[in-house]
Design a protein around this nucleic acid. Structure first.
Lengths: 330, 330
DNA sequence: CTGAAAGCGCTTACAG
DNA sequence: CTGAAAGCGCTTACAG
C-alpha cells in the first residue's frame, strides 16, 4: 500500500493541506514545518497520485500522439522528438496508430478524450474538423501536421512539401531529364496535392509539358511503388526519371528498374521524399528530399505547450523546411 | 463542458447509480429504464471520465512500454505489436525511451507509477530488481524482455539469442570459414552474454579455437561497428568472417570492408542479428538472424493481460524463436 | 429493480 | 503561517 497524503500528514503532525502545499511548492510555509513534512515524505516514500490530482485539476500530464503507423520509417524519429520535448515538462505520451483508417482515427481520439489528455499531436489522414471541434478546447489544444484548420485551440505544423517536390524535379531537369514521371501517393490528401503542385511547378517553369497519365497514384508503400513503376515504364519506355511521393515508393521504383534491366540512375533516375534511414543505405543510395523528422516532432510538441500556456492566443502555422539530399539514384 | 453522470441521471430521471449500472453493464435493470438512460447518454453525448473511474477502481486502462530508443529499427515493430494487442482491450500505451540510461530508466518507472499504469512491458538495460520490487504488484504486473527475474508479478519474454548466435556462426563455418571474429555489443548484458555463448558453442562444436582478442565489444550502433571492424581487420588480416551482435554493427562492418577494399562476402563474410528492415535493403543484403519483433510485442502484451487476470499465478517465461535468414553478405 | 451514502486521494477557495 | 470543509466524477458496499 503506497503512502497517501494523509499518512504523511499524520507522521509530520500537520494537516493534509500543509503537505499538499509543500508538495506543490505553493504558499508560505515555515521552514521548520517544511523540513518535517519533507522528512515524512522521504520516510514513507510518498509519491502523489497523479490520478487523484487529475480529477480535481483536470490535468493529466499526458498528451496523445496520433500517427499513421510507427513502423513507417518516417515516424520513429518524429515520435522521438515528441517524447524528448514532452519529458522535461513531466508529460507522458500515449502513442496511437491510426493506420490511415477513419474508424480507428475517430476511436483513438475518443479514447484520448476519455483519458483526459491535456493535448494532442496528430498526423491526420482524413478530414478532422468534426472530431477537432469535440476534442480541442482551451484546456486541450491540438497540433495538426500538414493540414491548416482555422479553429480555436488548433494549430498547424506544415512541411514545405511543395517546395520539396519542386527541388526534386528541378534537380532531375538539371540532370537533363525531360521525361519525368511521378508516383503520386494517395489522392486528395493535402501533402499529396502539394507534391503534385511542386512537380507541375517545376516542369512548367522550364517549359516542359505535364502529362497526366505519367502521374500515378496509390498507397505509398514499397510494393505499390514497384507495381506502379513497372506499369509506367512498360507503357511509356521514354520515361527517364521518376519523382516519388516518398522514399518507400522510390525504393519500389528502384526494384522495378532492376527487374526491367534498367540501371539507376543511368537509364532511369529516381528521387524520393522524406529521407528515411533506409534511403542512405540502399543501392543505389537514394537521392531524396529530407524532412527533419525529429525537429518536426519536437517543434510540434513545443507549440502544444505554448498553446497550453496561452489558451486564448492564435498561433500561426510552423513551417518545417526541406532540403534536397543528392546521392546516387539521381 | 462535457456531460457528467449527474447530468445524464437528471435527464433520464434516475439516480446516478442507475446510469453507472447501464454504462458498466452490471446488475439487473429494467429494459425501459435502460432505454431511457441510453437515450439520455446519446442526447448528451456522455462519455464516462476514465480519470474519475480510475480514482475509485485503481485501474487506469493504461500500460507503459519502456524501451531503449524507438528510432532503433528493432523497436517500431515491437511497439506496433504491443499497441495492436493493447487496443482491443481498451488500453492505451505510454511510450518511454530509456536510452539505456539508468537514471532515465528509473525516472520513467517512477513516472509510470505516479500515473498509475496497470502494467509495464520493459526492455531493460540495467539490473532492475529494486525498481521492480516497488513497481510490480498484483495490481500492476510487469513483463521483462530478455531477463529472467524470480519475482512475484514479474514474468519474462526471452529471445532464443544463444541459439540464434549459434545458427549464425554455424552458417559461416559451413561456408568454409575458420577465422570468424565477433562484434560483441556491450558487455555484461544478458543478451550480449548469450550471443557470445552461442558464438563459442558453434566454434568449439566444430573444433575451432576461440580467440578472445577477436571478440570486440562496444555500443551496438553502426559507427561503432565500422570502427571496430576497421581495427579488427587491420590488426588480424586473416579474419574472413564477422558475426555481429546486431544488424547495425553488421552494417558498420560492411562499411569498413568497403573502405578497406574487402569485398563482402568474397573477402569477408558478415552475419548480423535482428533482421531490421534495413537488412534486406542494403548491398550486399545482410544475412542475419531474424527475431519476429511484432510477435514479440504482441505476446509480451498478451502475457501482461494474462497476469492481470490471474494475479496470483506464476508464469513461465515465453520463448521467442529465431531464424537464420540467408541473403548475400554471407 | 433502484437509490442514498461514503469514499477513491487529492486541490481549491475560504477562514482564522 | 496553518486548517476544516467541500468537491473533482465516478464506483462500492449496503439497504430497501
Amino acid at each position: 500500500m503506497p503512502a497517501k497524503l494523509r499518512d504523511v500528514a499524520q507522521r509530520a503532525g500537520v494537516s493534509i493541506k500543509t503537505v499538499s502545499r509543500v508538495v506543490n511548492n505553493q504558499g508560505e510555509i515555515s521552514e521548520a514545518t517544511r523540513q518535517r513534512v519533507l522528512a515524512a515524505i522521504a520516510d514513507l516514500d510518498y509519491r502523489p497520485s497523479k490520478v487523484a490530482r487529475a480529477l480535481v485539476t483536470q490535468r493529466t500530464d499526458t498528451i496523445g500522439l496520433v500517427l499513421g503507423d510507427i513502423t513507417n520509417p518516417f515516424f520513429p524519429e518524429v515520435a522521438r522528438g515528441v517524447l524528448d520535448a514532452a519529458e522535461p515538462q513531466g508529460y507522458n505520451v500515449f502513442l496511437c496508430n491510426s493506420d490511415g483508417d477513419l474508424q480507428r482515427e475517430t476511436r483513438i481520439l475518443e479514447s484520448l478524450l476519455d483519458h483526459g489528455v491535456d493535448g494532442v499531436i496528430i498526423f491526420p489522414t482524413f478530414e478532422l474538423e468534426p472530431a477537432l471541434r469535440r476534442l480541442a478546447g482551451p484546456d486541450r489544444p491540438v497540433v495538426v501536421v500538414n493540414r491548416p484548420y482555422d479553429l480555436p485551440n488548433v494549430s498547424a505544423v506544415m512541411i514545405h512539401t511543395r517546395r520539396g517536390a519542386q527541388l526534386a524535379v528541378e534537380h532531375l531537369i538539371r540532370q537533363g531529364h525531360t521525361a519525368i514521371a511521378m508516383l503520386a501517393g494517395q489522392s486528395h490528401e493535402v501533402p499529396q496535392l502539394q507534391r503534385v503542385r511542386g512537380y507541375r511547378d517545376a516542369l512548367t517553369a522550364r517549359g516542359l509539358p505535364v502529362r497526366d497519365e505519367w502521374i500515378v497514384g496509390g498507397v505509398p508503400i514499397q510494393s505499390r511503388g514497384r507495381e506502379s513503376a513497372l506499369t509506367l515504364l512498360s507503357r511509356y519506355p521514354e520515361i527517364t526519371a521518376i519523382f516519388a511521393y516518398n522514399d518507400l515508393l522510390a525504393l519500389g521504383a528502384i526494384e522495378a528498374c532492376h527487374e526491367l534491366g534498367r540501371r539507376v540512375p543511368a537509364d532511369c533516375a529516381i528521387v524520393g521524399f522524406d529521407d528515411i534511414p533506409l534511403a542512405g543505405a540502399v543501392c543505389p543510395a537514394l537521392t531524396t528530399v529530407r524532412v527533419d523528422k525529429y525537429d518536426l516532432g519536437r517543434r510540434a510538441t513545443e507549440r502544444l505547450f505554448e498553446m497550453m500556456a496561452q489558451p486564448e492566443q492564435m498561433f500561426a502555422p510552423i513551417w518545417a523546411d526541406v532540403e534536397l539530399i543528392v546521392r546516387a539514384s539521381a
